[in-house]
């Protein structure tokens, strides 16, 4: 029983990071209908921004200092996301999906390879930007970092949900993702909405990068690859285009993976996500919370 609860918290903290990345995938897919392969590498850049920022923020190791690092990474990644959109994706508006997809892969490779040049290929250990410690609850022991990851991710998901459903920008975003042409006719500037979507999604990935790094605690230029792929699986499992779906999918994947990692089949951990992806794409391509679309002839 205690074992199970412990696993649950481990799974949730991993799932929370997947959820943060998955949200960006889902939002960007919602407005542009393509998989932003580079998203995972924005997550990585978030981790590195945290690394470089940590020594310079006042109050390192306190909650406030940690939050400053987190915000710094979010802002940095938001700018990066907008930059990528402007330079690589906007010129391809209206081009075949395949071309955009290939471009996204190119941007992703660029960030990875560029990261290796700039940051070095070896993993770097990540400082304790948040207070570290353990909380004991009877026989259970949680690290504060795990709880922090869950808490911050939860707060960000709620904030995003409020933003999307309670603000003008949010309703513009929903309009564009439902029907871009109609949205334009209604006087919505799609380019602005798309730019904000990239900013938001990338900021969440940046937060995810820092939280992931805090938990591990190290960063390297390829650290985005696996979490990125798994977060995408999470977005599909939850139902691509759906914000609660992405959160749900992320948590689910985190839990499943933690369970497998604790079992005798732990070495198959990385294959599980892909098996799940294939099963879902074949039997329920719309995901748990998504809706299916048919092509009109």
């Amino acid at each position: 029983m205690t074992e199970l609860l412990q696993q649950l918290v481990n799974g949730l903290s991993l799932g929370a990071v997947y959820a943060l990345i998955a949200l960006g995938y889902t939002m960007i897919y919602g407005v542009l209908r393509f998989i932003n392969f580079a998203h995972a590498d924005v997550f990585m850049v978030g981790g590195f921004i945290g690394l470089y920022l940590a020594p310079h923020v006042p109050g390192g190791g306190t909650v406030l200092g940690g939050m400053l690092v987190l915000f710094g990474a979010m802002i940095g990644c938001a700018l990066l996301g907008m930059g990528i959109e402007r330079l690589a994706y906007r010129p391809l508006r209206g081009a075949p999906t395949l071309n955009v997809l290939i471009t996204a892969i190119g941007v992703s490779l660029f960030l990875q390879a560029g990261g290796q040049l700039v940051f070095g290929a070896a993993p770097r250990s990540f400082p304790a930007v948040f207070p570290t410690g353990a909380i004991t609850l009877g026989p259970l022991e949680f690290s504060t970092n795990q709880l922090l990851v869950i808490g911050v991710a939860g707060a960000l998901v709620v904030a995003l949900q409020l933003l999307v459903y309670r603000t003008r920008m949010g309703s513009a975003l929903r309009a564009v993702s439902q029907n871009p042409k109609a949205a334009r006719l209604m006087g919505i500037n799609n380019d602005v909405v798309i730019r904000w979507t990239f900013a938001l999604g990338s900021a969440l990935a940046g937060a995810g990068g820092v939280l992931y790094a805090v938990n591990y605690p190290s960063v390297d230029p390829l650290m985005g690859v696996m979490p990125g792929l798994k977060a995408f699986v999470a977005a599909i499992v939850g139902g691509i285009g759906s914000i609660p779906g992405a959160a749900l999918g992320g948590l689910l994947l985190g839990l499943i993976e933690t369970v497998v990692a604790g079992s005798p089949y732990s070495t198959y951990k990385d294959a599980i996500a892909f098996a799940l992806l294939i099963v879902f794409l074949l039997f329920r391509p719309a995901g748990i919370l998504g809706r299916a679309r048919v092509e009109k002839v």
Binding site: P91, L92, L109, Q112, A113
Partner: peptide, 17 residues
């Protein structure tokens, strides 16, 4: 050699554009 992958990446994006 260490620039090879960056070069690939730039090539890919530039080609698509």
């Amino acid at each position: 050699a260490e620039y090879r992958l960056v070069l690939y990446a730039v090539l890919l994006v530039a080609l698509m554009l």
